[in-house]
Design a protein around this nucleic acid. Structure first.
Length: 782
DNA sequence: GTTTAGGGTTGG
């Protein structure tokens, strides 16, 4: 790799490689032989430097001076992707408007050509052969970095090399009819709502140092394109809005080419633009403008106190308020009303309405621990807001504006309450958009949600997850399900083992026993994979087999055209093999958002390399190629690595394919969302053990499965990755079955056992015994 | 090359 800056009027032309033959941008195709070729053009767009493990990525667009009138201008502009150190140098030293010469590039098909209307190919610059020369009229601010040079004879440097410059109008200077760019502090806003036309409409009132308050009405066909206002005090930058006179005052409406950036309004905070725009201009001057607006606003009273959101603990009856909260569950009540169960980690001092709804129509948990129940607020959402409510996913973080706290007996049609009539606070989001009524989904990384999460994270975790029921278990052992009373309890009479053995199947018994031995002795072998769909229990593929799958896949892997939603790049492996470079694919939207650690598709790696990379990414999906497309590995291999965790799919129930994944309601990718996107039936870790127990009368082999986790006090998933959990499991088993004793010096255990009929290996009917709730440990015996 | 809304509370 090499990188040179030449300024006008100086420098040895010897530095410029004259042996490279120039290829016009318009003639570049994927079949172009790129050896000893050069491309020249002006940088018309310079993207942000994006870091991905050890590799940086930067996207730029260069435009070649129109060489022939027959060439359409769209073929004169081409995307250039720079990787590694070159991307970093480019980011530091190249400005929009510079002329550059590149060589040592490769050409690939541009997956975004139809969208960005640029050249059908991309140039890729990475590795040793890649080379960039930068020609600039003005000397660089740092003269020491310049090569003394005279103007190169191989290039013409045009005079007009200015990046587009935006000017901003103060709100006090708006003239009706003009299309302008403005900055302003948000003093009031309405979340996007469906208009009677084709678009969503949002409304904001902004102000600036001119003290003029201006209403902006934004029409966009989807919610994401609207300014992402989280709270009053946010700062917006609007490009291409039209000033209009209405009712004697000037307002602003978006017009063609509209784009919006929004910033948090807190003085001293990072100036980070939020936007759905793929590319936008943002420089030091913009940063200054935001900071000036912030400090100006800090000294003003711009909006009423109640514009802020208040915690549930501060809600007063008969008031309207704004709430920042997390959605826990939701259920439709009727065609005009939806119930949202939300919390913010604080407890409302007033008794809250406790709405009880049909579990069948509830999305999210249908019951909560008694303690948590006290923190949950029921929000009834009416009319136009139910459409938004329908799209919400439990877990999402919300900002609900203009909730009404109604005290007194509240009767909601079709909604049962577990409480007798009385004073209970109910929260209503009435229909309409007056006073900014509406629901907004806030991303997890937003300032209001970061604050909310600090409160929620300190809340004690609920115990008890959805568990497998007994019919699942019976199916696993191929036993026909029959009606079973599941009221296993430790209160029923103790039965000696000898008597138990004589009893009929499908019965529940309580026994008091000691643990004589258990299998597997190597406890990690107790770890299995369970498919909820086909209810099969499967072995975890061993590393040797998985390593083979990776090595086979690596042989088949060849660089392929990235799917439309992804970009291709390389990654240098950290550690001991500096020359090892692997192909990676990153979802484009993550790259443009700078979220390059969240999800990576990795090609051609070994198992060991995949594990190493998984340490620095949140989600690593190993891929190979098939017919020029990304494809998953054989399903014996984990389809996903997150940190030390590996996730497997069920061979029988998956139809795996690599597709564009969407994050969950919180904007994050996890095993569940990825499995869904790739049609992978996720396997769960479970523990399966055989215990040999004894009492004074007999010995018996029993199976323990779903309660093994309770028994051992660890989760199967933790056992899979966590040495501490494994140690804990060993210690527990040692204490229940002391290794020096084969005769029962361990504690007595009260177990509930269920008998069922199954087939043994030889196909013979046999009684099996299953531990069907968490054993109670009695005092140590002698 | 521009329809939609045009802040300000019925209440379930």
């Amino acid at each position: 790799m090499s990188f040179h800056i030449l300024s006008e009027g100086t420098g040895p032309s010897a530095l410029v490689p004259t042996d490279l033959s120039r290829i016009p941008v318009s003639l570049i195709s994927v079949h172009t032989d790129c050896v000893n070729r050069r491309v020249e053009g002006r940088v018309v767009h310079k993207g942000p430097l994006v870091s991905a493990v050890q590799d940086f990525i930067l996207k730029a667009v260069i435009e070649e001076k129109d060489s022939s009138p027959h060439v359409s201008s769209q073929n004169n502009s081409i995307n250039v992707f720079l990787l590694g150190a070159l991307a970093k140098k480019f980011s530091q030293d190249v400005n929009q408007g510079d002329m550059i010469l590149v060589s040592g590039f490769t050409v690939e098909k541009s997956p975004t050509a139809s969208k960005d209307r640029l050249h059908p190919c991309n140039l890729l610059l990475s590795g040793d052969s890649a080379c960039i020369y930068v020609f600039r009229e003005q000397p660089s601010p740092d003269p020491s970095s310049l090569v003394p040079s005279k103007r190169s004879s191989t290039l013409e440097v045009s005079k007009a090399a200015k990046a587009p410059k935006y000017t901003y109008v103060q709100l006090g200077d708006l003239k009706a009819g003009s299309v302008v760019n403005v900055y302003g502090v948000v003093v009031f806003f309405k979340q996007p709502f469906r208009s009677r036309g084709t678009d969503f409409c949002s409304s904001l009132k902004i102000t600036d140092q001119s003290k003029q308050r201006t209403i902006c009405t934004i029409f966009c066909d989807n919610r994401e394109k609207h300014p992402q206002i989280y709270q009053a005090g946010d700062i917006v930058r609007l490009h291409r809005v039209k000033a209009q006179l209405f009712d004697g005052s000037i307002n602003l409406v978006n017009t063609f080419g509209f784009s919006a950036l929004t910033f948090d309004g807190a003085v001293g905070g990072a100036v980070e633009p939020r936007t759905s725009s793929q590319s936008f201009h943002f420089d030091e001057e913009d940063k200054r403008t935001v900071e000036e607006l912030r400090s100006w606003a800090a000294g003003q009273v711009l909006f009423p106190q109640n514009s802020a959101s208040i915690p549930l603990s501060a809600v007063q009856p008969k008031t309207y308020f704004n709430l920042t909260c997390q959605l826990l569950a939701k259920a439709p009540v009727d065609s005009t009303c939806t119930l949202l169960k939300v919390w913010d980690g604080t407890r409302c001092p007033h008794t809250l309405l406790n709405a009880v709804v049909e579990p069948a129509v509830t999305e999210g948990p249908t019951s909560f621990s008694k303690n948590k129940e006290n923190f949950i607020a029921n929000v009834l959402v009416f009319d136009n807001h139910t459409e938004m409510a329908r799209q919400l996913k439990p877990g999402a973080f919300l900002r609900i504006n203009n909730l009404q706290a109604t005290s007194g007996s509240s009767k909601v049609l079709g909604l049962a309450s577990s409480q007798s009539e009385g004073d209970h606070l109910a929260f209503y989001l009435h229909g309409g958009t007056s006073y900014g009524r509406g629901i907004g989904v806030l991303p997890e990384n937003s300032a209001p949600i970061q604050e909310l999460k600090r409160v929620l994270d300190s809340f004690p975790v609920d115990v008890g997850v959805e568990e497998l029921n007994d019919s699942d278990l019976l199916e696993v052992w191929g036993t026909p399900p029959e009606s079973l009373e599941s009221d296993c309890s430790h209160h029923i009479k103790l039965v000696p083992l000898s008597e138990l053995k004589q009893s009929n199947p499908d019965q529940m018994h309580n026994v008091r026993v000691q643990l004589r031995s258990y299998q597997p002795r190597r406890l990690y072998q107790a770890l299995k994979l369970f498919c909820r769909k086909c209810t099969s229990i499967q072995e975890i593929p061993d590393d040797e087999l998985v390593a083979d799958v990776f090595s086979e896949a690596s042989k088949r892997s060849e660089s392929c055209t990235p799917p439309w939603w992804a970009l291709r790049g390389n990654v240098n492996l950290p550690g001991d093999s500096p020359d090892r470079t692997l192909s990676i694919y990153l979802p484009t939207h993550l790259v443009t958002e700078g979220k390059t650690k969240e999800l990576l598709f990795l090609m051609g790696s070994t198992l060991e390399e995949t594990c190493r990379l998984a340490a620095s990414y949140q989600n690593v999906v190993p891929v190979t190629s098939s017919g020029g497309h990304l494809a998953p590995l054989d399903s014996s291999a984990p389809f996903l690595f997150t940190g030390r965790k590996r996730y497997y799919g069920c061979k029988r129930c998956s139809e795996a394919a690599i597709r564009n994944p969407s994050p969950d309601g919180l904007g994050v990718f996890n095993a569940k969302t990825l499995a869904e996107a790739f049609s992978v039936q996720l396997l769960e870790f479970v523990l399966l053990m055989k215990l040999e127990v004894q009492d004074a009368t007999d010995t018996l082999e029993v199976l323990i499965w779903k309660d093994a986790e309770l028994f051992l006090g660890v989760s199967a998933e933790d056992i899979a990755v966590n040495q501490e959990a494994q140690n804990h499991m060993c210690q527990t088993m040692d204490s229940l079955c002391p290794p020096e004793s084969r005769t029962g010096r361990g504690p007595w255990l009260d177990l509930c056992l269920k008998t069922f009929r199954g087939k043994d290996d030889g196909g013979q009917d046999q009684n099996y015994y299953h531990v069907c709730n968490a054993p109670i440990i009695k005092n140590s015996s002698t």
